[in-house]
């Protein structure tokens, strides 16, 4: 239990997926203009990463590793994630049209979000030696809280950017540079969590 708590804190804050591992930078910079869209993207990523880490771990543990095919993990995982995203989109469209209407735009973009593949690969390298139940729990918890870390980072970023709109930014720093400076300051703030674990 204590170990799971450490995983929660470290994946959400200490090694935040965007600000210290640099995964998922493209949506972090591209979709953070408004709080609503940022929150939508964050929610969609949370959804996909959690399900993807719950599916990829058993596939690695029960199929790839016993068959000695663990070097195929990259190919297998990217295909699983691409199929999963399509599948989630169809399921949402059929059974939860309201949720699909709010998350639908972001789902196709998530296939190439490196955070999803990165978390899946990190899970199997870190927890492949554990017993199945424990490794599975760790993977899902890590997936969920990594994604929540992404949600936190992108929502904070969007709210700062909304305020930046009204600021007098030097001409050459308008656009992407000021966003990157903001990200840098946020990363410094998140470095402060390093002492927690």
């Amino acid at each position: 239990m204590g170990n799971l708590f450490v995983i929660i804190i470290s994946s959400m804050l200490v090694s935040n997926v965007v600000l210290s591992q640099f995964l998922g930078i493209c949506p972090f910079l591209g979709v953070s203009k408004k709080i609503e869209t940022a929150a939508g993207m964050g929610a969609a990523v949370t959804f996909v990463i959690t399900i993807a880490s719950a599916i990829t771990y058993p596939i690695y543990y029960f199929i790839l590793e016993p068959a000695g095919l663990d070097y195929l993990e990259t190919i297998a995982f990217i295909l699983i994630i691409a199929a999963l995203v399509q599948f989630i989109e169809m399921v949402l469209k059929k059974f939860m049209p309201a949720l699909h209407a709010s998350l639908g735009v972001y789902l196709p973009l998530i296939t190439t979000n490196c955070a999803v593949l990165g978390v899946a690969l990190n899970n199997v390298t870190d927890y492949a030696e554990e017993s199945f139940g424990y490794g599975f729990a760790c993977s899902v918890v890590r997936g969920l809280f990594t994604a929540i870390g992404f949600l936190i980072a992108i929502v904070i970023m969007a709210s700062i950017r909304e305020r930046c709109e009204y600021n007098d930014v030097p001409k050459s720093f308008q656009g992407t540079p000021i966003v990157l400076v903001t990200a840098s300051l946020m990363a410094i703030a998140f470095c402060g969590f390093a002492g927690l674990v």
Binding site: F22, S172, T176, L180, A183
Partner: peptide, 27 residues
């Protein structure tokens, strides 16, 4: 060499590009 430095260096390089009006997706 830490994480925040990466963002800062990239930000200054793109700002430099904007300043020199070099073609870029950012300007």
């Amino acid at each position: 060499v830490l994480a925040p430095g990466a963002f800062l260096v990239l930000s200054f390089l793109t700002a430099l590009q904007n300043k020199l009006k070099m073609p870029s997706a950012t300007n």
